[in-house]
Write a protein that binds this DNA or RNA. Structure first.
Lengths: 123, 123
DNA sequence: CATTGACTTCGAGCTGCTCCAATCCGGTAC
DNA sequence: GTACCGGATTGGAGCAGCTCGAAGTCAATG
């Protein structure tokens, strides 16, 4: 059932280094240690890490991830605020998509200009 | 015609700090100085800075931006490679959008799970 | 008992800003 | 003239968020 950090890293997408970093930064729930001192990850942990992976991947600052983690530790009491954080982040994703779209248009114009002209300083 | 750094910053979206940083990092074409030693930006500069703004905004590393800049200094000789860099970046944007989409789906599921259940450790 | 290999901690290094301090310059107010 | 102010200059420190490498521990294997 439980697994080592290498296995957890493979499953969640984060590197072992990053997982340890997140752990020491207080962004993970308690992780049991074996008699050898190694962390023992449960599927729950992996699920949590995977969520963190996506949040980070899409630009959520660690500060907010920490807040999110501390709310999770508070249990039911923090559910509403957690939902709010995720909803806010979903909004932020929309803004990111708009930036992507805008940049794509800029690139398309720029690339087209290379094809038809040689606008050095302006390109 | 020419303008000061404050005006250029307003127009391109980058901060004055960042513009100076880019300049000292060799990512800008030659910028003339007034007798007071202040940089004098032309519309061409602003156009260039604006492109850099979008590239940075969408995650292009400075290293590549420097390469792009040095190709621009080479004039016509570098056009093909510049076009390639921009085309590659446009591809990268698609990948970013896929990540955004994936994260949105993850968030939607997570948010829904808060509404119906209280999955603390897993959330 | 030596080695291998996965784990541990700690701390340095990296990118890309961001901000601060000290300084200088041009222009107005007295 | 000189006092002052706003806006520019430089250099360097600081910060986020990793990322990597060194050095050590422990279990199992030859």
């Amino acid at each position: 059932m439980d697994m080592k950090i290498s296995e957890a890293a493979k499953r969640c997408g984060l590197s072992e280094h990053t997982i340890r970093f997140y752990d020491s930064s207080g962004m993970l729930p308690e992780i049991a240690r074996g008699s050898d001192g190694h962390r023992r990850f449960t599927p729950r942990h992996v699920e949590w890490l995977t969520l963190l992976f996506w949040l980070r991947e899409t630009g959520m600052p660690l500060k907010q991830m920490r807040r999110f983690a501390s709310l999770a530790k508070a249990g039911d009491a923090g559910v509403a605020q957690r939902r709010e954080i995720l909803a806010d982040h979903a909004e932020a994703l929309k803004a990111k998509r708009a930036v992507l779209d805008k940049c794509e248009r800029v690139l398309a114009i720029k690339i087209a200009s290379y094809g038809s002209a040689d606008d050095d300083a302006g390109a």
